[in-house]
């Protein structure tokens, strides 16, 4: 790949006196900083869609444990009998895992690039762009990852759940957020808020990265990003809080 572009009817012979670039040229689209940003945007979008579905599913708990369990079961039996048990869910899980891994890979890679780009730090540095959310993306991402691991152990595999693995999803959920386990609800709440902050910048940022943003849309995009984040936060917090405070028994 070359960095010079076709010069059309150049009237001069072309040779390359260009100084050797400071760093090795990265390979291909995924090697470029923009390519990595696109990876973040696309995988982020996949995860946002997942979160929306996940949230809607969670809300089933308000229609009773059976409704919730049916939903959980349906996830596994969808497409049956055409495809074997758990086909769709497995595909979804694979897509999700790939998204998470690629999102993290791109984030780590960009973050390493950033630290190479500024080897000597400022003695004094003051942020001029207002936007608390933008500055905690990496920290937020790492926190969310830790939470997701805990979350899977708790409610998917039941390893740290009082009901264990051999129980219905609704049981695990209700017992997991029991008032006696208020600290679980607290961890969950903190993590969900973190997700919200992450998305407030992330959703807007994805549009910017994919080149769909412009100054006429900025306001609308920021409002949308904030709205989606708030809806998700509220939607995710409603069931555990309802359980902890005894609204759902």
């Amino acid at each position: 790949m070359t960095a010079t572009i076709e010069r059309g009817s150049a009237t001069a012979p072309v040779n390359s006196p260009k100084k050797a670039p400071a760093r090795k040229r990265p390979g291909g689209f995924l090697g470029s900083s923009n390519g990595k940003k696109v990876v973040m945007a696309v995988t982020g979008a996949v995860m946002v869609l997942f979160l929306v579905a996940h949230m809607l599913g969670n809300l089933k708990i308000f229609f009773g444990r059976d409704s919730f369990n049916e939903y959980a079961h349906a996830l596994r039996t969808l497409l049956e009998p055409i495809a074997p048990y758990r086909t769709l869910l497995t595909i979804l899980e694979i897509v999700l895992v790939v998204s998470v891994v690629m999102h993290m890979w791109a984030a780590i890679s960009l973050s390493r690039r950033a630290s190479h780009a500024r080897p000597v730090k400022y003695v004094a540095k003051k942020s001029q762009a207002n936007g608390y959310a933008t500055h905690i993306m990496r920290f937020g991402g790492a926190t969310i990852l830790l939470f997701v691991i805990w979350h899977l152990l708790d409610l998917t595999f039941g390893v740290v759940n009082p009901e264990g693995f051999n129980s219905t999803p609704a049981d695990r959920m209700v017992s997991g957020f029991d008032a006696s386990r208020w600290w679980v609800t607290l961890i969950y709440a903190v993590a969900v808020v973190m997700v919200g902050l992450h998305l407030r910048h992330g959703i807007w940022s994805a549009f910017q990265t994919l080149g769909w943003a412009n100054r006429n849309r900025y306001r609308a995009l920021r409002v949308t990003a904030a709205a989606v984040s708030v809806v998700l936060v509220v939607g995710f917090l409603a069931p555990p809080l309802a359980i902890t405070f005894g609204v759902i028994k």
Partner: peptide, 15 residues
Amino acid sequence: VDQMDAEGFGGCTNT
């Protein structure tokens, strides 16, 4: 953009 990368600048995170 490729030249920008080659020079060792960081990537944009839309801050």
